[in-house]
Design a protein around this nucleic acid. Structure first.
Length: 669
DNA sequence: CAGTGAGCGAGCTTCCGCTTGACTT
């Protein structure tokens, strides 16, 4: 049968479904993302000629483009169905140019792959929206200018092979700044006092209440001496119930997953790192072979910033909830969630493709990791359409002279969506509270209570927590930095560039990360600011709406930026020459030793280089475990990555992938 | 799994955002 129309989408996983919807008259092909880009080997932007970009076919995509042309050789009508966002519009435009004038080209856009949406889109083909294309080009050009100007600067000033960019440099800065906060942090002592109280003399049951206020002011106790004094003073008073407040609290379910929320929840609940989550999600999206040997996509697209859900899926969730849990578990009307402002909404939220497909029914076809992730996605989606949970909250205030104590208890009245999906991990909130009965006895205002004992306790304020993969993604997303398709690669980049190190799941800046961030912040404060991307996004929105011209944005950025680049070339401190000072003395000439970065990482160099050529490796602070060796371990870098060797090499050839002992601080390179 | 840097100077490193490959035994 001869096909008369061709459709091009971005991802091959979609093409099958779309072909089913459109019928045998269509051939559906995939572009595999962008096919045209700036050349890798040079800047490729002519700033003197309205920032004209030099576009080339991406070398790895030549094969695909050739295939697209071959398969559409005898077809006149081509429908470009890339994703309905900025990048998708650019892909469509590139494809259109690649095909030339011999074809009839139509742009169709749909944001869900259902028969009705696809058919509707094909009923309304339109032209390519050049405003969107220009917005994409502006972003692309600006990112190239920043990345390909700052990176060579670092090669000159620090060491070869480094990189910098609008996104990665801010991500590194987040980690560096967090570490600075932690270093600066001084734990402060404070004390709390709890009273163990009971209703009547002889009553077995007692309860705890916490000292909240002294003389109507927030109780703040600095040290043990003060605590003891207050403790003595409290004892002189009688305890009287002064206020009882009964209230009701509702907890709403959470929206179905976006990429970043999936990465965070999978990290918290399943302890998956973001790249593991994405790899597994990809397999669920591409499909798994079921009993009838049909390969079926189990979840919707996993790279999305939208919480939108198709009506079909909403209906399916509704019927499942009504049947399985009953009408009280379904709200008056469907729960509706709002995507964040910056969302591009090209895809739906991440949800099961068929909500009625219960995780248990798939267990035998899925690998354990796949099952866990599918179950998480399925539960999150179904619960997002369920009723709220209801709690009764009772707060009791007890006065002892000028001292005010408070206690409160929460009792679950209606579990609602929590029957399926537990909220925060490790929190007492839901599942735990349910097991614990209400501890405070029935009391009335004005009632006198017996004090059994006062419990003073010492506490210290805690430093902020370091980022994990998941919390860094969260911070980036909240700042509008990066996209669903780049969150996992960003983390990979800053770790493989040796700016950041992951130790037991938490991210530490390396000295290289700290040094480069300091240089960049000093000379490019605007670009290293999280607000830079937010401002850029606003301007890109303006271009998309046709309110601003792309040249206005690029010109306004370019000359001050190039001025900063020139200034930095002249004035930025050269770590390559000056290194970082240490208090070590060169054993050969007695001058100071400094830290420098070479192609194999950090090392100690004499500050009098090249006059004195003495150099040393930096030890990891751990002795070589080889018996009667006595050497120290050194972190080394090979083509295969980081490993630990011995200072006595080549005499001692001990190597290890990781340190035998945990020496976190000393091994930060 | 392995010896670093300055300078001479050829040729190389680098960005962000779309998307999934698979040269072999």
């Amino acid at each position: 049968m001869t096909k008369t129309k061709a459709v091009i989408v971005e991802s091959p996983a979609k093409s099958k479904t779309i072909n089913k919807i459109l019928g045998s008259d269509y051939v559906v092909l995939a572009s595999m993302g962008h096919i045209i880009d700036l050349p890798k080997s040079k800047m490729g932007i002519d700033a003197t000629n309205d920032f004209k970009p030099e576009f080339i076919v991406i070398p790895e995509r030549r094969k695909y483009l050739a295939k697209l042309k071959k398969e559409t050789k005898n077809i006149k009508k081509i429908y470009l169905a890339a994703d309905p966002d900025r990048e998708g519009e650019a892909i469509s435009w590139h494809l259109k140019n690649a095909f030339g004038k011999s074809k009839k080209i139509y742009r169709v856009s749909f944001d869900e792959i259902t028969a009705s949406a696809v058919k509707k889109a094909f009923g309304n083909p339109h032209d390519i929206d050049m405003h969107l294309v220009h917005a994409q080009q502006t972003r692309r050009i600006l990112d190239r200018l920043v990345g390909y100007s700052l990176s060579p600067l670092l090669w000159k000033k620090v060491t070869r092979g480094l990189s910098a960019g609008r996104v990665q440099s801010v991500a590194v800065r987040f980690v560096v700044d967090k570490e600075a906060q932690i270093k600066k942090f001084k734990p402060e002592e404070y004390w709390g006092i709890e009273a163990n109280l009971r209703k009547n003399e002889g009553e077995r049951r007692s309860f705890m209440a916490k000292l909240e206020k002294i003389d109507k002011k927030e109780a703040y106790i600095k040290n043990e001496k003060e605590a003891k004094k207050i403790e003595e003073d409290i004892k002189r008073n009688t305890f009287i119930v002064s206020k009882i407040k009964e209230g009701k609290k509702m907890r709403s379910p959470q929206a179905p997953f976006t990429t970043s929320k999936l990465q965070q929840d999978a990290f918290n609940k399943l302890h998956f790192q973001v790249n593991r989550t994405m790899r597994i999600a990809q397999t669920l999206y591409e499909g798994v072979e079921l009993k009838n040997k049909d390969t079926i996509g189990l979840i919707t697209y996993m790279r999305t910033d939208s919480v939108r859900v198709s009506n079909e899926a909403l209906d399916a969730a509704k019927s499942y909830i009504l049947k399985k849990y009953g009408p009280e578990y379904y709200p008056q009307k469907p729960n509706v969630y709002k995507s964040k402002k910056s969302a591009q909404e090209a895809h739906e939220s991440i949800r099961p493709t068929v909500p009625l497909r219960h995780p248990d029914s798939l267990k035998e076809f899925l690998a354990p990791d796949q099952f866990k992730l599918y179950e998480l996605i399925w539960k999150r989606f179904i619960s997002s359409q369920m009723s709220r949970a209801a709690y009764s909250v009772t707060t009791v205030e007890v006065e002892a002279g000028k001292y005010l104590f408070r206690t409160s208890g929460t009792k679950l009245i209606f579990d609602g969506f929590t029957v399926l999906y537990s909220l925060s991990n490790g929190s007492l909130e839901d599942s735990e509270r349910r097991k614990e009965p209400w501890k405070v006895p029935v009391l009335s205002e004005g009632e006198e209570l017996n004090l059994i004992k006062l419990f003073p306790s010492q506490h210290f304020t805690k430093p902020p927590a370091r980022y994990s993969d998941a919390t860094l993604v969260k911070a980036l997303e909240e700042a509008g930095i990066g996209r669903p398709s780049t969150y996992a690669p960003i983390i990979y980049t800053i770790i493989t560039r040796n700016y950041v190190k992951r130790i037991k799941g938490y991210l530490y800046p390396t000295q290289l990360g700290e040094v480069t961030t300091e240089l960049l912040v000093k000379h490019f404060p605007k670009i290293l600011d999280a607000g830079f991307t937010a401002k850029l996004e606003n301007e890109l929105d303006g271009i998309e709406e046709g309110a601003i011209d792309r040249l206005t944005v690029l010109k306004a950025f370019y000359s001050p930026f190039m001025h900063s680049v020139d200034e930095a070339k002249k004035n930025m401190k050269s770590i390559k020459r000056e290194g970082i000072k240490t208090d070590k003395i060169c054993p050969k000439c007695g001058k100071a030793m400094i830290i420098k970065w070479g192609r194999r990482g950090r090392f100690l160099s004499c500050s009098d280089f090249p006059k004195c050529r003495h150099a040393e490796s930096i030890t990891a602070g751990v002795k070589c475990p080889e018996p009667s060796c006595g050497g120290d371990l050194i972190e080394r870098r090979s083509k295969r990555g980081v490993f630990y060797g011995c200072t006595n090499y080549p005499k001692c050839t001990f190597t290890s992938r990781s340190l035998p002992k945990e020496k976190i601080e000393e091994t930060k390179q």
